[in-house]
């Protein structure tokens, strides 16, 4: 399968082999014994049962032997897990932020990415931050998983030993689009990673292409994963689409009263800072958390500029 992709592969897969090996031996051995007894002692062949009340010796044997075996399994489970617990100090730090329903990764030089780019053969430690509910960062090929709990800062670390692209999933159920909260880990050769991380044009574009209106806003929207709930093409997802939103007239419910509003900057700002105040007709309350901590006035201006552009494009 994924043999040797991360520094845990060997320990975890050994524990799997030991436990599954013992388990299959027991399952097959006991099932075969049981079926043999059922056939051998069928009433046609063995009409009179031999009454046996029990055997202390056997009870001791089948208490002691499984006890030893489970302790062996416990040991392999423990030794495969122990390295996950000891985080090396020189590991490269990446801030991993989860929100419904998107992962984003922030590097120490300020570069952000939707995919987790890491160098091969170097320890990486992820700061696990959730902005809303519990998520769980799971990379099956690496054999790692750790929950991302709001209000707690946790860490996980690993080292990839092979280059390639590997699935990264959210493993803790987090609502409507849980199964779409996926991305990939891109393990690059060290040199290639160095040039990737040094290349901040993705970030720089925001200033460089300022001439084109809305670019900065578009980047914010992509970085925060707004588009996983608010489509750009008119599709109805969890929240209203951004397409043709600017200047539109909407029916909203505020404190139980229906009223008509026009989408202006004030409305956009309120919807981002207090998303559960005005609920647009046809949508549900409680689906979005406030982005007050993350978005400044200037950011909201940038988003408004972007909304204006997708209005004009169509």
């Amino acid at each position: 399968m994924y043999q040797g992709i991360s520094n845990y592969s060997e320990g975890v897969d050994t524990a799997f082999m030991v436990i599954l090996g013992i388990s299959f031996a027991f399952l097959i051995g006991l099932t075969v014994t049981m079926i043999y007894f059922v056939i051998r002692y069928n009433k046609k062949r063995h009409p009179k049962a031999t009454q046996i009340k029990g055997s202390t010796a056997l009870e001791i044997v089948w208490t002691v032997v499984p006890t030893i075996l489970v302790l062996v399994m416990f040991y392999f489970g423990w030794s495969g897990w122990r390295p996950m617990h000891d985080i090396p100090e020189d590991a490269m730090k990446v801030k991993s932020i989860a929100r419904m329903w998107k992962f984003s990764f922030e590097y120490e030089n300020g570069k952000t990415s939707e995919k987790l780019y890491i160098p091969k053969g170097e320890p990486v430690v992820l700061d696990l931050i959730s902005r809303d509910v519990i998520h769980s960062l799971y990379i099956p090929a690496f054999r790692v998983k750790e929950d991302m709990v709001p209000g707690r800062t946790k860490q996980m670390w690993f080292q990839a030993n092979k280059t390639g692209s590997f699935d990264l999933f959210c493993a803790e159920y987090c609502g409507l689009r849980h199964s779409y909260m996926t991305t990939t880990v891109e393990v690059l050769p060290q040199e290639e990673f160095k040039s990737w991380i040094a290349d901040t044009t993705g970030v720089a574009t925001a200033e460089g292409e300022e001439a084109k209106p809305g670019t900065a806003g578009k980047q914010i929207i992509e970085r925060l994963g707004c588009v996983s709930c608010h489509s750009l093409d008119g599709t109805k997802l969890v929240g209203p689409t951004f397409k043709n939103l600017w200047g539109k007239t909407e029916m909203v419910t505020t404190d139980g009263d229906e009223r008509q509003i026009t989408v202006d900057k004030e409305y956009i700002k309120r919807s981002i800072y207090q998303p559960n105040v005005d609920i647009v007709e046809g949508y549900r309350e409680g689906q979005m958390v406030s982005y007050k901590e993350e978005l400044s006035d200037a950011d909201i201006d940038a988003i408004v500029e972007f909304l204006k552009t997708i209005d004009e494009e169509e």
Binding site: F16, I19, I22, M73, F76, G77, W78, G80, K145
Partner: peptide, 17 residues
């Protein structure tokens, strides 16, 4: 027997959830 896979730390981390 599959519960043993879940009781063991290393394998639980992989197959949990």
């Amino acid at each position: 027997l599959s519960g043993l896979v879940l009781g063991s730390l290393a394998t639980n981390v992989h197959v949990h959830d």
